[in-house]
Design a binder for these strands. Structure first.
Lengths: 247, 247
DNA sequence: CGCTGCATTGAAATATCTCAATCAATGTGG
DNA sequence: CCACATTGATTGAGATATTTCAATGCAGCG
C-alpha cells in the first residue's frame, strides 16, 4: 500500500479501512524525483499535492543573500505540501534531498474524495496541523537554544520521527543530511555546525559522522536533555499521546 | 457581527452570507478574559476553541529556565486555538496580553456546523494554515536575521496584520507589547531588544516608544528592507494575493 | 514619598560568524 | 594505476553580535 506510512505510530489506527482505500484510489501517479531540482516553488499556483512515499525532502525560505533557511523536513509517510490544497500556493520551496518517490494527488480529486467525508477531512486537516506543531517547536529551537542545543533538538526530532516509521533501530537512522543541512535547519553557519558536531561527539552523544549516510546515536537521553526536547508535540490527539509520556 | 473581522482583508469575501450566519449561530458565549492568566494551557484536553473578538494574545513555549519563547501572536479577527479542534490538545500556552474579549465555540457544535459544509470546513482549515505560514516566516526571522532584522520583520508583520483589520492608519498602531514581549518573540534578550529599538530609532525607522501603548512608524519601507520582509505569506489564496504584489 | 514596572546604559564575558586554509574520500578521464 | 577535480569535513584566528550582570533613570500611582 502506497500510503502505508501515513501517520504511522500516531493517528494511523484512527483511519478506517474504507478511508484508507479511498485515499489510495485517489492517487494519480507515483513518480521519482531528484534534488537539487525543486519539486514545488514558492508562490507558483499548484493543482496537486505530493505525498512522500520514500526519500526525504526539505522546505526552504531564501534570504536576501541567497542563503536558505529550512522551514521543514519531510520523511516517508509525510505529505510534503498538503497545505497547498486549501492554500493554492506555497510560501516556500520544496526540494528533495536526494532521490525520492512521491505519490501525486490532484486537488480536484482530493476535493471529491473528502467533500462527503468529514472524518477523512479531519484526518488530513490534522496532519497539516501536526506539521504546524513541529514548526512551532522549530521556533522554540531557534529562539531559545544555543547552537549545541539546536542541533541536539533537531537530532531528537529526527530520531522520534524515524522511530514512528521504523527506520530507527535504537542506535542508527539513515538520513542524507550533510552538516550544512543541519546548519540550514538550525540557523547557524556551516562552520559552526561542524564545531558543534565535534562538541556532541566529544560529549559522547553521537558517533563520528557517517558522511551524509545517516547518524549513529550514542546517548539519546543526553541529547534530549541538551536539546530540552519534549516529544509530545509530534503526537497530537489525546489518547494516542498517552503512549509516550510528556517531558 | 461578532466575527466581523475574520479573515478581513484576505479571504473574507469568499465566505458566503449563509456561512457567516451559521458561524455566528455556533457561538456559545462571548466572555472577557485578562492576562497574565492563561486562557489555554499546553497539553490540557480542550473542548472549545476561542475566537478573538477584541484584544491581543500571545502563544508561548517555555524553556528549562522558565523563559518563554513566543510562537504566535493573535490580533482581533484571529482564532487563537482553532487547531485544538482537530488536535484535541495544544502544544503551547495561550495568554491574553492584557484584557481581551473572546467568542467561545464548542467543538461538538463546530463539528455539527462543518460536517455537512465542506466549503466552510475548507475556510477554517485555510485559516489554521495561514497561521502555519506565519510561523514558518517566524522561523526565517529567527534563523536568518540579526536582532535588528528580527525586530524590524516582526514590526512589519504587525503593521500588515493591523492594516487588514483597519487598526493601522499609516503611522501608528495600538498594541500592548512591551520591549520584553518583542524580545520573547524575536529570540533575543530583553536588554538587547532595548538596544535594538534604540538603533531603529536612530535610523529614523520608528519613533520613541509610547510605553506599551503601541508603535509609531516613521519609515515602513526602511523596516521592510531591514527585515527582508515579504508580505505575501500573510495572504494565501491565489486571486486575492494579486492585490498585494510580492517582494 | 516611596513603590513598582519598564526603559536605558555600561562593561565584561560568551557565542557565533567570517575568511582562509587544509584534509580526506570519492569519482573521472587518460 | 595515476593525476586531477569535486565535495564535504575540519581547523585556526580575528572580527562581530549578543548575553549577562549590575546599575540607573523615569513615570505613574497609592
Amino acid at each position: 500500500m502506497i500510503t502505508e506510512l501515513f501517520l504511522k505510530g500516531r493517528l494511523r489506527d484512527a483511519i478506517s479501512v474504507d478511508d484508507r482505500a479511498a485515499l489510495e484510489t485517489a492517487i494519480e501517479d507515483v513518480i521519482e524525483v531528484e534534488g537539487p531540482r525543486r519539486l514545488v516553488s514558492r508562490a507558483e499556483e499548484v493543482e496537486v499535492s505530493y505525498y512522500l512515499v520514500d526519500g526525504y525532502m526539505a522546505r526552504y525560505l531564501d534570504d536576501k543573500r541567497g542563503y536558505r533557511q529550512s522551514v521543514g523536513f519531510q520523511v516517508p509517510g509525510d505529505w510534503v505540501d498538503l497545505h497547498s490544497f486549501p492554500m493554492k500556493r506555497l510560501d516556500h520551496d520544496v526540494v528533495p534531498l536526494d532521490r525520492a518517490k512521491v505519490a501525486i494527488f490532484r486537488h480536484d480529486r482530493l476535493r471529491e474524495l473528502i467533500d462527503g467525508n468529514p472524518r477523512l477531512t479531519r484526518i488530513l486537516w490534522f496532519s497539516t496541523l501536526l506539521d504546524a506543531a513541529m514548526i512551532r517547536e522549530w521556533i522554540f529551537r531557534l529562539g531559545r537554544l544555543s547552537a549545541e542545543g539546536r542541533i541536539a533538538h533537531f537530532i531528537c526530532e529526527l530520531i522520534e520521527r524515524m522511530r514512528f516509521i521504523e527506520r530507527y533501530d535504537g542506535t542508527f537512522f539513515p538520513v542524507p543530511l550533510k552538516q550544512s543541512d543541519f546548519a540550514e535547519a538550525c540557523g547557524v553557519s556551516p562552520v559552526h555546525a561542524n564545531r558543534t558536531f565535534k562538541l556532541l561527539r566529544d560529549r559522547g552523544l553521537v558517533a563520528a559522522s557517517e558522511g551524509a549516510g545517516g547518524m549513529r546515536i550514542l546517548d539519546e537521553d543526553g541529547l534530549r536533555r541538551l536539546g530540552e526536547f519534549r516529544g509530545d508535540y509530534l503526537y497530537g490527539e489525546g489518547d494516542l499521546k498517552l503512549q509516550q509520556p510528556f517531558g
